[in-house]
Amino acid sequence: MFGPDQAPLVREFLRFGVVGTIGFLVDTAVLYAAIGLAGAGLYAGRALSYLAAATTTWALNRHWTFRHRRGSAHPARQWIAFLVVNLFGFASNYGTYAALVSLSPFCAQHPVIGVAAGAVAGMAWNFSLSRRFVFSPRPGRGS
């Protein structure tokens, strides 16, 4: 199915998936905390939870998934680049979430379903763009 040339890419994608799962847990925990403890609504709470999850996944991807590709970029610059290029994944992620919680009463009562669907929707964008523009081993390419 995959040749030996593709093994590093497959390993990165699997690690990215593990990190994404951790990000999903952070996203969900922060969303429920924002709603329950801070009184945030479904949308503002999700914006906060997404930022927390994105920061978590950036750090884990930097130190584990793409550690051999992270280059010499200053961490703050790389974090900003990660957030910028992942706006495509965010649009897909948040759009899926917003559609589900606004159109489905069940998803509005159980927003974790929308978070999960959004995470899956944004994953391919996030992996491709992060690998290419944030964790590129080439100098001067945001690495």
Rank of each mutant, 00 (worst) to 15 (best):
V120E: 03
D5V: 00
A99G: 10
V10L: 12
W125G: 09
F13V: 15
L31S: 11
A91C: 14
G17Y: 01
G142E: 00
G23S: 13
T65V: 09
H74V: 06
V134I: 08
S136H: 04
R138A: 07
A117Q: 09
F133G: 03
T55I: 06
R141D: 03
G45Q: 10
T56Q: 04
R138C: 00
L83N: 11
L60E: 14
F90Y: 03
D5G: 09
R131M: 03
F90I: 13
G114E: 04
V26Y: 08
A53E: 04
Y50N: 08
N86M: 04
N86Y: 05
F24V: 00
L9R: 04
R67M: 05
L129N: 04
H110G: 09
S143E: 15
F24C: 12
A47H: 02
A34F: 05
H74Q: 14
F66E: 10
Y50C: 09
C107W: 15
H110N: 14
S128D: 05
L60N: 14
R69T: 09
A91N: 11
I80V: 00
L9M: 07
I113D: 04
A91K: 10
A124W: 02
F82Y: 13
G114V: 01
Y50E: 11
V84G: 04
Y43N: 11
M123V: 15
V19T: 11
F16Y: 09
V84H: 00
V30I: 01
E12D: 00
S130L: 00
A40S: 14
M1V: 13
G20S: 04
Y32G: 00
G39H: 12
L103E: 11
T57M: 06
P111K: 02
A44F: 12
F2T: 01
A98I: 09
G122Y: 03
N126Q: 05
G89L: 02
A7N: 13
V112S: 12
G45V: 03
V115D: 13
A44N: 05
G17I: 02
L60V: 13
G23K: 08
G20V: 02
R70Q: 14
S143K: 02
G36W: 07
L103A: 14
T28Y: 15
G71K: 03
L87G: 12
I35Y: 05
R69W: 14
W58L: 07
P75A: 09
